[in-house]
Each structure stands twice: as structure tokens, then as C-alpha cells.
Amino acid sequence: MTATQDIAISVRDLKTFFYTNNRCNKALNGVSFDIKKGKTLCIVGESGCGKSVTAASIMQLLPTLSRIEQGEIIYHADRGDIPLHALEKNGRHMRRIRGAEIAMIFQDPMTALNPVYSVGFQIKESLRYHMKMVGRAAHQKAISLLKEMGIALPEKRVNDFPHRYSGGMRQRAMIAMAMACSPKVLIADEPTTALDVTIQAQIFELMDKLKREHGTGIMLITHDMGVVAELADDVAVMYMGNIVEAGTVDEVLRQPTHPYTKALLASVPVLGKGRNQDIKAIRGSTPDPLNRPKGCQFADRCDFAVAQCQTMPEETRITPTHRVMCWRYKELVPNG
């Protein structure tokens, strides 16, 4: 177990529910994980499994009809532990942390920047509110941020509007904005889904550099297993509002234990194996979130399901860092 001072944010038994038409969607049903300082935690899972809700819960940016029902999100700040889940949504304390200590970048850089303000203006907004930096100093800081993110001619580009930036440049600008106040944690919600592959690699390289140079803890939401292998220190696999398996990147990728993780890894095509390779799509589809199975959420699609799977499995630790939510994990652990 890592010492507490290395942890930036710890999430314990988090439950976030959505309410629509008097029905309740348990989007997050007891999620626990830690974001460590200077490490990357990748959260993987298919669409709708609760990855983005996790991010929104930490930032307290949940939509109106949802709320954190139970559990805690503790931000381990230098000035002491702060329970984020207990802070008022758009209150002063939460706003002080947002952007300054925990920053976020979003999926689609095309729409995440405000089209009517220059990129520089939007970077300077953060500086003004969190660092009390205005005027020439803020302008210089914005330029140096853009420069650090690898934008050519930052002195000129700082005054440009987002529509004159390409997709990759916009995401760089977004990262510049997020990094403006040197946050402790950077939450990236599928930051490269909207970008092409070469740009993806550049953006990830940039994020890795920030992690190394600034010691920023990164929570990266993705569904790209290649990215996980490349960037992650820790991995959490989510399925229908639960973390079904979590551990270090080696543990999860080399010794996948949960049937879902195995299935997920088996469904990744491998470059160079040709078109006849055996890609196993996971059979069935995700259950209706408003009408979930009672027990293990994956049971209906699982090749190893037994009668016991009709009740929710406990979280079990295989090693101090590797945990899994499955009744049959003992039989399924590779090499053991």
C-alpha cells in the first residue's frame, strides 16, 4: 500500500445516482480508487460504464439531475485533507480548487473552448481567478504556457481565436489552460477521442512530460488499451458503475483476472497479425442501466458465470495493489 502522502485524491465507496422520470440510475455504485501524485491512473471501460461520471463527481460538475449519494472523495491538499464530496457544488471552496488544484480537459477540443474569446483570454481567466495575475504578467504567462505545450509562434497565437487553431492545437491550448495554475491533479476525459492518431500520440507525450516534470497526478479516462499500456501506472477497469478490477498496469494487463478484463483485452486487434486474427467481441450488450441485474453486473455476458454470480461479489485483493470483483477469481488468476 502506498503511503498517504503520495496520494492526491482518494475516492472511497463513491455512489453517484442519476434521477430521470422518477427512476434511479445508479451510475456509480461504490467506486474506490486513489490518484497518486506524479502517476497516471487510467480508467478504462466501454461507453456508459461511469468513467465520465467519476470525473464529473470529483470536479463536482455533475448534471442537475444527479448527485453523490454516498461515499467520499478526499483531496489531500498541502493544507490538509479536503472532503470534496461535502463541498457546495459551485461554492467558493469548490471553485478555489477547481482549475487551480484539480484541472480537467475534455473530450472534444472543438467545442470545449469558447469561440468568442481568444485563447489567451481563456488562459488568463484562470490566472486572474486563482493566481491574482493580471495584465502584462498574465499575458507573458499565457505565452509561456502555450510555448511549453508546443504551440508555434505563441506570441502571435495567444491572441488568436479558437477557430483559427487546429484540433490538436486546441487540445494543447486546453491543456495549457488546465496547467495554468500548476494543478496537483489533471483529469483528462478521453482527451484524444476527437483527434487523429499522430496528434493523439503527441498529446499523450505532452501529458506524460507534464507528469514527469510537474509531478502532476493524472487521471486518464480512455477506452484505448494501447494508451493504457503506454501511459498508465495504475489501471482501473470499470463496468456498469463498478471497478471490476484494479491494480498496477503490469498486474492488470499481464495477469487479467476478471472475465471482463480478459474479454476486453481479447477484443483488441493486434497490428501485424493480419485480418484473420481471432478478435473476440464480448457477446451481448450492456444491460439497461435502469434495470440492472441483481448480482454481478457482467454475469449475463460472462463465460464463467455460475449461480453464485446472482449476488454481488465482494471486492477481493489478490495482491496488496491488485483487486478484483469476482466470485471465481481464484480459478481465473493466470499462473496461479
Binding site: M59, A103, F106, T111, A112, L113, S126, Y129
Partner: peptide, 11 residues
């Protein structure tokens, strides 16, 4: 989306 971005900046 940019409204969410603005909020995430702590404005």
C-alpha cells in the same frame, strides 16, 4: 461544452 470548461476553471 465550453460552459463546462469555464466551470471547471473555477470561475
Amino acid at each position: 461544452d465550453f460552459i463546462k470548461t469555464a466551470r471547471s476553471k473555477g470561475l
